[in-house]
């Protein structure tokens, strides 16, 4: 394999070049990044179940975003496009040789109620949720997260994961039912 390395001078030149190559200035990027990085990192973390991989994919997501040639209509469009890149990266990664997410021995799951849980109960619920999510298909995870963590509309979710809007509602319903079932039983039967 031929390895490419950059000298210090080339690295310095890379910054000037970046301003021309990337679709936004460094200052605009900083503002956009501060607004989006944490939610995207959490999304990637939940989609992959692997913090290291999520960190790598976060960098890749922003790199691809910066290199994109899309004319964005507004910030929402920009944000949706970013999630679309992240979703595709997760799916691409899944298509490579499969790595099973390790499931730890976790406390007895419980179905959520409409009462305010205490801290310990909340932590237990989050662990249950992470475990249940790890048993869902990547697309189901994406749909549920975009719908209930980010509050996206069906149209936005459909565009992001690449399905027809009409198909999304039953898919989301099935995904929600599966997740509820997994939360009740504590795992796949």
């Amino acid at each position: 394999m031929r390895e490419f390395t950059l000298t210090d001078m080339e690295r310095l030149g890379a910054f000037d070049e970046a301003e021309r190559t990337f679709q936004m200035t460094e200052e605009a990027f900083r503002t956009f990044y501060e607004l989006t990085a944490r939610p995207v990192r959490v999304y990637l973390g939940r989609m992959t179940g692997d913090d290291r991989l999520a960190d790598d994919l976060l960098q890749e997501t922003y790199y691809r975003f910066l290199r994109s040639n899309v004319a964005f209509e507004n910030d929402d469009h920009r944000r949706r496009y970013l999630y679309r890149i992240a979703t595709n990266l997760v799916h691409d990664h899944r298509r490579r040789p499969h790595v099973e997410v390790a499931s730890a021995v976790l406390p007895e799951p419980r179905y959520p109620a409409f009462t305010e849980p205490n801290l310990a109960e909340r932590a237990a619920r989050r662990i249950d949720l992470q475990r249940a999510l790890s048993h869902l298909k990547p697309r189901e995870r994406s749909m549920l997260w975009l719908a209930y963590a980010l509050g996206w509309s069906h149209e936005e979710i459909a565009a992001s994961i690449g399905v027809k809007t009409g198909s999304l509602k039953p898919m989301l319903h099935r995904a929600r039912q599966r997740l509820a079932g997994l939360l009740k039983t504590g795992g796949p039967s």
């Binding site: 990085a37 959490v42 960098q59 549920l144 963590a149």
Partner: peptide, 29 residues
């Protein structure tokens, strides 16, 4: 999911914007 998302946001460690920009610039070169 919303509760998990909200709490995870506070816990998430993300690299600084400048660092991500720098890596992207080097990668682009």
């Amino acid at each position: 999911i919303h509760d998990d998302s909200e709490r995870s946001r506070y816990e998430a460690h993300v690299p600084a914007a400048g660092q991500v920009w720098w890596r992207a610039a080097i990668r682009a070169r």
